[in-house]
Nucleic acid binder design. Sequence first.
DNA 1: ATCGATATCCAAAGCGCTTTAAATATTTTG
DNA 2: CAAAATATTTAAAGCGCTTTGGATATCGAT
Lengths: 342, 342
Amino acid sequence: MNLKQLSDQLGLSQTTVSRALNNYPEVNEDTRERVKNAARKHSYRPNTRASGLATGKSMTIGHIIPMNSTEVFNPIFGEFIAGASRAYSKRGYELSLTMVQEDSEESIYREIASKGSVDGVIVHAPRVNDSRIALLQQLQLPFVIHGRDNSNETDYSWIDMNNRRAFYQATKLLVDLGHSRICLVNGSESLNFAWRRRLGYVDALDDEGLSVSADLMYSGDLTEANGYNAASDALAQSDAPTAFLVSSYVGALGVRRAIHNAGLVMGKDISVIIHDDELSYFQNDGDIPQFTATRSSVRDAGERAAMMLLDIIDQPDKSPLTELLDAPLTIGASTGPVKKLM
Amino acid sequence: MNLKQLSDQLGLSQTTVSRALNNYPEVNEDTRERVKNAARKHSYRPNTRASGLATGKSMTIGHIIPMNSTEVFNPIFGEFIAGASRAYSKRGYELSLTMVQEDSEESIYREIASKGSVDGVIVHAPRVNDSRIALLQQLQLPFVIHGRDNSNETDYSWIDMNNRRAFYQATKLLVDLGHSRICLVNGSESLNFAWRRRLGYVDALDDEGLSVSADLMYSGDLTEANGYNAASDALAQSDAPTAFLVSSYVGALGVRRAIHNAGLVMGKDISVIIHDDELSYFQNDGDIPQFTATRSSVRDAGERAAMMLLDIIDQPDKSPLTELLDAPLTIGASTGPVKKLM
DNA sequence: ATCGATATCCAAAGCGCTTTAAATATTTTG
DNA sequence: CAAAATATTTAAAGCGCTTTGGATATCGAT
């Protein structure tokens, strides 16, 4: 059933039917009722492509997810998108998902812009000195970044958590507990978030007068295996760390396994603080959470980012929107005072 | 830059330019070259909505992901979609993602069908007696199900793994190792896959002459917490199980935590077999995998499902396609002969 | 009854593309 | 060299919607 058929059936013009359905004021309330009932009855919906052509809008938001060469699909993307989709369904938008190898990223953005298939995009996983910001500005495609650039954070819209502060505080807590050998198990530090977290970690050690050792800093995809390997490696060092600071729950699972394997007990022999994105299938709460953690819901961030983008699309000349989410530190069972081994 | 502008610039008709770009044979090779170069130079791409309107195809596939009331976003969806998107990008399709509460599912499918915004859909997480199959057939929307119906598996297309066989074999292995109290930690059994797995488990116990105890069957969202709670509960029973069969890696992490908490050692005191969907951030391989597991790559399933759907769309009168993936059992460190406790 | 204002409806253009039907060039053939 | 065949190009219609500009109906006030 299309508009023509529906309006023929009703004995009305396409104009009137279209206006009735789109709640334009210049149509009689009785007719509007009649039209809406008929539409419901035949479950008529305006064809997306046709109305998009006519209005110049696609009512679709693109999410472009970078895949690196290791082909790891970071679970936080799924959770972020679950949040974003809440906003879209509320406001009548659709979500288009594209996964792209880093090396063809620029051409994909160009393609998306010229095809006009989306009204805006969410940029995931910004890197250090990410070229996508300038590109998108040039392409005139509305966008919101989940994260930030490192050099410039004023002339575009973003939502981010306070990575640096979170890791500063976490590091400081470990130092206050007496730890001086603290191992950082971080995400890939070509990514902005991981770079910021490292900054927080290093700053805190500096401020506390502790040395920063390259041997205690690991970075890579936040997989269970990488967490395990990093922690195993660190624990085998002659001057092994007594605490770990881990950038994700998933990575921390590997760290915990390594600790167990070394015959140590997490929370007693070794302290661990994680950043917890609050993935729905890894709840870290309850009276005493498993892990001491800095916490920030990535699903929530997804919803806010999406709303922000829709606002920008509605009001194009508004100045950029930014939002910095806090990631409070909550104490769980995985931390304790340093224990002198011997 | 649109088609009119491009063809004006070239001094050709829109027809010829369009044909040149779409590789129609009736255009001179020289002109084609000229057109393609100009298109590249101005980075012209046909507007998606316009060409969609003209051809009647949207070149996008919809993925509809059910969210239950617990709001858990199952990580396998992300991984499946990562696979599917590979197929789409190869064949020029886009991916539209919709998350939907179970109660509004039917209306969403109807809406999608009448809006015509997708050429086909992938159906995720089929339930026992799922009404969506009949609905989609009625709506004439091409679809592929990741999973199957329980009563009928002939007149529609699906891709599934052999859930029943996998869990039959896994159960049998545990029995062969001497276990007789085997606890099943399953997904929500209103879902088809979990229902089939339970069938395999029950059949194997029956065949081996062992009793099936309701106390040893848990089902629910496959979260870490649920795995932990189920296993903790089971281990506290007077006649506690000596082995666990767990439907996912994530759930098994919880089970493992409960085993540790009970002061037991996985692989020695307690055996565990999981189903491993081969999530990219939870590799369970190496010389001796952590977990004995039935394995089947869900990312691979995603890619195959997508290709299957695209084939169906290309050749609508072809009979339904089906594919049953095997999930071979591989031995890891988490299983061993039953140990008499005392 | 008549006029202007207001409410309600409609015909037709246009969004940017593909494709049908037809026109024009170019080759081939006898 | 003309006719027939083939190669190449084009004008125009149409996809299903929104929206502009106008038409028609209705109403209160004169």
